[in-house]
Simulated scan of single mutants.
Amino acid sequence: MAALAWLLIPLFAAIGAAIWGSWAARDRTTGDVAELAGYEKFREAMQKPRSGSEAA
């Protein structure tokens, strides 16, 4: 019975590693839409010509 316990420890470790690996590699791009829209607004604002008087 002790040998079975020693064989189950690496099995449970491998299963845990597989679960953690799949969780760590999950797709996290769902929240990027709002951030990309904000970045696009920032780029548009930076490309606009300056208003007001410019020093010559």
Rank of each mutant, 00 (worst) to 15 (best):
R26H: 11
I9M: 04
E35N: 08
L11G: 05
A3P: 02
G31W: 02
L8E: 10
A55M: 06
A56H: 08
L8H: 00
D32W: 05
G16Y: 01
D32R: 12
T30Y: 11
A55S: 13
L4K: 04
K41F: 08
A24W: 13
A18P: 00
V33E: 13
A56P: 06
G16D: 02
W6H: 03
V33W: 09
T29C: 01
K41R: 15
A17R: 04
A14G: 11
A5G: 02
Q47R: 14
G52K: 00
I19K: 04
E54Y: 02
F12D: 09
A56V: 07
L36Y: 07
W23M: 07
L7M: 08
A14H: 03
F42A: 15
L11K: 01
D32N: 11
R43E: 14
A24D: 12
A55P: 06
Y39F: 15
G21F: 08
A45L: 05
E35S: 07
A17Q: 05
V33Q: 14
V33I: 06
I9D: 09
S22G: 08
W6K: 14
S53H: 15
L8V: 10
E35I: 06
A25Y: 02
G52D: 04
A55D: 13
Q47I: 01
A5L: 12
E40M: 07
A3I: 06
P10H: 09
S51Y: 06
V33C: 02
E44A: 15
A2L: 15
G21H: 07
E44C: 01
A37K: 15
T30E: 15
A14R: 05
I9A: 10
A37Y: 11
E40C: 03
A13T: 08
A24K: 13
G38R: 11
R43N: 11
A3F: 04
A13D: 07
G38W: 03
S22M: 12
G31H: 09
